[in-house]
Design a protein around this nucleic acid. Structure first.
Length: 932
RNA sequence: GCGCGCGUGGUGGAAUGGCAGACACGCCAGACUUAGGAUCUGGUUCCGCAAGGAUUGGAGGUUCAAGUCCUCUCGCGCGCACCA
């Protein structure tokens, strides 16, 4: 392809306009309080110059891409899909008069750069900077209208300083159960002190008042311990010793969300459970809000569903079972308290703390073996063996509180320690898992629910029905019997209604070098006491990672930061935390920083936040966020969580960060397979750009199909839109001058400027300022209407098709009125901005008007009156089948239409010998003659 | 297994319940041409010379009218997966 003649000189046009935009800072977005230069096209459009207040600025539109991890491999064609869509909309909104914020940056902490450092010793920062430079070059070559003055990288010191600052806010906050929001930990500390001095702030809060009461009642010698336990259990960032997902291959722990089928999401390496001291974030405190607020935002149903599933709310009851011949109680969680009469045994998770207490002498060896066996099993093995149930009897019995019957207590790994209470009552008749287990171990099965269809099998019936064999519940439908039994349990003090979530707290520390260090130190406790952690003051930020020679974990399995002894022990009497934050930390709030990227006093200024993020009509936060589905539960849940904490603490103005979110679909290789290096089907944008240019590339990415769909790449398809741009070009320029240009270019010296060469190309003589014909105006206005509506609905493919229709028609015109051709360029501009700017400049050059900036020229409006036809075609059906088309005046009444339809030539053969019984007329749409 | 989404020409895809297949790729024919892998013109769902008939994964249903709405079914994709 590169050997054949170019359709038009995109290789000169594209760099020319990219340079012009850069020099003009054409896409600078202005914050309230900023100076707008009088010459800036945004200022010209809105009549603004000098320092502008928020009230003077036009309405904002914040349109955001998920920022990329700058990998060594560079951009692939999947990245620019979303970026092109957002760029088109950003450019469109600018012409509509919005103050558009459209930024780009880098999610630049991350494992690959660190792994490269381990191998080569090159500092990750060096690798990262080189990759960013390459990504920047590639992205800029596509002509996106980003405001590069707001570029940020999560690895910038000035950025991660504030990531660390937000961590301190999390550390120094707790979730107040009464206020139902995060609050400064000072309130809790105050309530846990002898002389509270913030009491007026919390005396109406029953949780804090109660905490204070407990403090006053506690014996003085236990007060210190009491205080630290209460506070550590409340902080939003806390330390846990629980078993974690340890990935030996990656040398780090992973969050639950990063583990898929027992393997690491990155690399697919085995993950094992291992108890370790880790930092956690209390995202579970926000489970309810994260769930409820999904209803307030405009995301796809499937994405919301994924978040709902991940949060996994389930309503049920906790029930206490007394252990026979013991004072112990076992608490279970069940969503089906109505089946309590059918509980024939009980199962504890192998890790349950009561196992040791209740196990009998005879069973102790079997139980111990089983526990060891499960502990050794990796998560993969646990999943793979899921089909076959296993377990061991403890020898102990529990008493069913409703009927006093003794039921055996088992342990089995199908009960998870980390969900609910880590114990269940087993109702094999109406739970698939319990049923399998009961079959295998010959445990009794008692029916307590009758399916509504009499013939249905009750064994293994898990739906709602009617209670049977259930004493005072008999005859009640499931919903009612749930209520009745729950009330009964509450009355007797044996249980209560409970809501459980699958969502677990977020494991927030990693044993890595290339991440944000925690602003935390550890201090020795008083003799005999364990070490305790302490936050560094905000004034100590940023906390930089130390310089290392070797980036591997230590031989003793300590994180790489532990190699820097001086750094670790820099503060007298304290040791630094050597874990770092996960990559998700930086991406949790970058969208906020974009709004005020240079602010040195605050992570984001109030004015900037109020202007860019505050509600704009219904919309709150980012107006449009586009990115891949791979972030459906990780980034998007974490970012919502941080945002809500910052909102609760009063640092941001909105409760949700992203009002509207769209997932772009995957682009597959030409073979219809997922693009991958190993398949050799990866398409590199650089190559496409050399052959067809950025405008064709952008156009093709959008023309392939709906943005949200998965679709295969097809280079032939690029040629199609490329030809369309060629036709557009030829419609505007003089052919002879183009030939002259080509000859001159072939002989051109290096010194000859591209601009000079391009100036050889002249505007086509057919473009004149004569009045447009009605047909020409119709073609234009139909195109304006379609493109405008499709842009509003993000239907880029059909918008492009409408422009193709226009060009195909315009090619038949002898005279091309400038009043028609100019607005067309405005429609084309968001999609193919370089060629549109070039032709726009030529039009203005020839017709002697001052060149206004295309990027800010007001979007053309369509005139509906022009689209009204005086005569319309109406399809005629006979008995529902299409037979002919009639032409009638648009204002024709039904009688006229009916007469014309009955006379329609091609309908006659189907009407012969029949009487017309009924005529259905849908005005302006169709006629249906019912004959028989 | 559960949840969500999708099935339309050789291909990517268009169609507020109202002429299925816009637009583009590919293919076929023609024009210009020393040449065409440039450009332009015409054709292109299938069967049929035609009139006409069939046709939106399959089977039913609602409706004057169904790709579109409902039920069942098959196939594909995505997500979750022992969460009690």
């Amino acid at each position: 392809m590169s050997s054949s003649r170019r359709q038009y000189p995109f290789h000169l046009i594209e760099p020319k306009w990219q340079k012009t935009w850069d020099e003009q800072q054409a896409f600078r977005a202005f914050n309230p309080g900023e100076e707008v230069p009088a010459s800036h096209p945004f200022g010209v459009r809105h009549g603004l110059s000098g320092k502008v207040a928020a009230t003077q600025l036009p309405p904002k539109y914040y349109i955001l891409d998920m920022f990329p991890y700058p990998s060594g491999a560079g951009l692939h064609v999947g990245h620019p899909e979303g970026y092109t869509a957002t760029d088109i909309l950003a450019r469109y909104r600018r012409t509509c008069g919005f103050n558009v914020l459209h930024p780009m940056g880098w999610d630049s902490f991350g494992l690959p750069a660190e792994q490269y450092a381990v191998k080569t010793g090159q500092h990750p920062r060096v690798t990262t900077e080189a990759n960013i430079a390459n990504f920047t070059r590639q992205i800029k070559s596509l002509g996106f209208s980003y405001d590069w003055s707001r570029e940020l990288a999560t690895t910038d010191v000035e950025y991660f300083k504030w990531t660390q600052w937000i961590f301190l806010k999390l550390y120094n906050s707790y979730f107040d159960p009464e206020w139902k929001k995060a609050a400064p930990i000072e309130f809790l500390q105050d309530a846990l002190s002898d002389n509270p001095n913030l009491k007026n702030m919390w005396e109406s809060n029953s949780y804090l008042v109660n905490t204070n009461k407990l403090w006053n009642e506690a014996k003085p010698e236990v007060r210190d311990e009491f205080r630290s336990i209460v506070i550590e259990r409340a902080r939003l960032a806390y330390v846990s010793e629980a078993p974690v997902n340890w990935c030996p291959e990656l040398g780090t722990v992973l969050a639950n969300e990063e583990v898929i089928d027992g393997k690491s999401e990155v690399g697919g390496f085995p993950v094992i459970r291992k108890p370790m001291r880790q930092w956690m974030l209390r995202i579970t405190a926000y489970a309810e809000k994260l769930l409820a607020d999904l209803d307030t935002i405009d995301w796809s149903d499937s994405l919301k569903e994924m978040q709902r599933n991940w949060i996994g709310r389930s309503e049920g009851a906790e029930v206490d079972f007394k252990v026979a011949d013991s004072n112990e109680m076992i608490r279970v969680f069940t969503t089906r308290p109505d089946t309590l009469f059918g509980a024939t045994y009980m199962v504890l998770a192998p890790e349950h703390r009561l196992v040791d207490e209740i196990v009998t002498e005879e069973q102790s060896i079997a139980v111990e073996n089983y526990r060891e066996h499960t502990a050794r099993k990796s998560d993969i093995e646990r999943t793979e063996l899921a089909k076959e149930k296993s377990g061991v009897f403890t020898g102990a019995y529990a008493i069913n509180p409703v009927n006093g019957e003794q039921i055996p207590i088992w342990i089995a790994d199908y009960v998870l320690a980390s969900y609910g209470t880590g114990a269940i009552m087993a109702v094999p008749a109406h739970d698939t898992r319990d049923f399998e287990f009961a079959q295998k171990f010959n445990l009794p099965v008692i029916q307590v629910v009758q399916p509504s269809e009499a013939k249905a099998e009750w064994q293994g019936f898990t739906d709602d029905g009617t209670a049977v064999n259930s004493g005072f519940l008999n005859g009640l439908p499931t919903t009612e019997s749930k209520c009745k039994i729950t009330a009964w349990l509450e009355e007797k003090g044996l249980g209560k209604k409970t809501i459980n979530y699958k969502l677990r707290d977020w494991l927030f520390s990693r044993q890595r070098y290339w991440g944000e260090p925690f602003p935390i130190v550890w201090k020795k406790g008083p003799s005999g006491q364990p070490p305790y952690h302490e936050a560094l003051p905000e004034s100590s930020l940023p906390l930089l990672p130390p310089t290392l020679e070797d980036y591997k974990p230590t031989a003793g399995g300590e994180p790489p930061l532990a190699r820097a002894k001086d750094w670790m022990n820099e503060i007298p009497g304290a040791t630094r935390e050597t874990n770092t934050m996960p990559q998700w930390a930086g991406s949790c709030w970058y969208y906020l920083r974009y709004t005020d990227v240079k602010n040195a006093q605050s992570f984001v200024g109030k004015d900037a936040d109020n202007y860019w993020m505050a509600s704009n009509g219904k919309a709150a936060g980012v107006d449009l966020y586009v990115g891949g589905t791979e972030h459906a539960v990780l980034h998007l849940l974490y970012a919502r969580f941080w945002h809500k904490v910052l909102f609760d603490l009063g640092y941001v103005a909105t409760p949700e960060p992203f009002y509207k979110l769209v997932n772009q679909g995957l682009i597959l290789g030409e073979d219809g397979q997922k693009m991958s290096k190993s398949r050799g089907n990866v398409v590199n944008p650089d190559d496409v750009l050399v052959d067809y240019g950025a405008d064709a590339f952008r156009l093709y990415e959008m023309f392939m199909g709906p943005l949200q769909d998965t679709k295969p790449w097809n280079t032939k398809g690029v040629e199609g839109v490329y030809r369309f741009l060629g036709r557009t070009w030829r419609l505007f320029v003089d052919e002879k001058s183009e030939t002259a240009f080509e000859q001159a270019e072939a002989l051109a010296t290096e010194a000859q400027s591209h601009r000079e060469l391009l100036d050889l190309i002249l505007l086509d003589g057919g473009i004149t300022d004569i009045a447009a014909t009605l047909a020409q105006l119709k073609a234009l206005h139909a195109c304006i209407k379609k493109v405008t509506e499709d842009l509003d609905g993000m239907r880029f493919n059909t918008a492009i098709s409408a422009m193709m229709v226009f060009i195909n028609e315009a090619m038949t015109w002898q005279n091309k009125p400038v009043t028609v051709m100019k607005p067309f360029l405005q429609l084309l501009a968001p999609f193919a901005p370089h060629i549109a700017e070039e032709l726009w400049a030529r039009l203005h050059g020839t017709f002697g008007q001052a060149t206004t900036s295309l990027a800010y020229a007001p979007w053309p409006k369509f005139d509906a009156a022009l689209l009204v036809e005086s005569e319309i075609e109406i399809p005629v059906q006979v008995n529902g089948k299409f037979r002919d088309v009639i032409k009638v005046a648009v204002e024709a009444d039904n009688a006229t239409i009916e007469a014309a339809a009955k006379a329609a030539e091609k309908a006659q053969p189907f009407l012969v010998g029949k009487t017309i019984k009924k005529v259905i007329i849908v005005p302006k749409k169709m006629v249906n003659l019912i004959a028989g």
